[in-house]
Design a protein around this nucleic acid. Sequence first.
DNA 1: AATCCAGTTTATAATTATTCTAAACTGGAA
DNA 2: TTCCAGTTTAGAATAATTATAAACTGGATT
Lengths: 137, 137
Amino acid sequence: MHQKKEIINKLRSSNLRPTKQRILIAKKLFDRKETFHFTAETLNKVVNRKGQTRISLATIYNTVEAFKKAGHIREILTNNSKSYYDTNIKSHHHFYDPQTKKLTDIDYQEVILKKIPNPPKGKKIKDLEIVISLQKK
Amino acid sequence: MHQKKEIINKLRSSNLRPTKQRILIAKKLFDRKETFHFTAETLNKVVNRKGQTRISLATIYNTVEAFKKAGHIREILTNNSKSYYDTNIKSHHHFYDPQTKKLTDIDYQEVILKKIPNPPKGKKIKDLEIVISLQKK
DNA sequence: AATCCAGTTTATAATTATTCTAAACTGGAA
DNA sequence: TTCCAGTTTAGAATAATTATAAACTGGATT
């Protein structure tokens, strides 16, 4: 699905030099069936499994920031102390389970908004995110 | 509006011993016309203005946590590195301006949801928060 | 009103997540 | 092959928050 060539193109098209670190991280992020919700910490674990070429934590942070700026991933709202990111960049929403600290996608069409407020003068809406927090029934 | 007696009752009713620190913090938080969006840092500044009896930063954090647990304030979703809190505990939503890092309330009736998803099995919805990020027009 | 003690406050240390720094490395243009 | 801007890296620095443990206090009990 995400061949090395595609990944390299993706990087090139956003002015990111396709280094081996970025290619490896991109593979781990985008070569999946399901979209991926992650923090710097979880990505670091996935990337630096035993035996792999080691990538420094600083590079994990740099790359996440670069991919975010390029629009390949998006940051998710939570009130956790860590930053959460999502490989699903289409407009969609999330369930958040405070017990497990896990996020789940909510498909865009699962939420229908009938009315939204006008933005303040001089501003326009950049993004609308809904987080539905869960608790045990 | 929020007399000392009311504040003491509020604290007592949530099993918080009405210490002078908590009473002072509660006054600063709740004795206002508008609801208040704050971080530990901004609350600390408001509480420890020159001349006031000094309250330690640890107590600011302890009290914010205690008030949050008691439901007197609520934490707001952002993807900022600091935690934001709101003295408005009624269900409502927010505009977020990434430029100024300022939050603004959106009245509950300004948003009408026509459809929301069913929560996963075994879970129920605890809360639904909408954050509308803004950008320059 | 003196005593007492669990709950609270405090200064400070520790921790956690993230960003910075500056030296070494590298992709790819020339 | 050379070169250099862009990138990676280990480790230091920073920022926000939490933990620690000693001192203090609200208020119940005497």
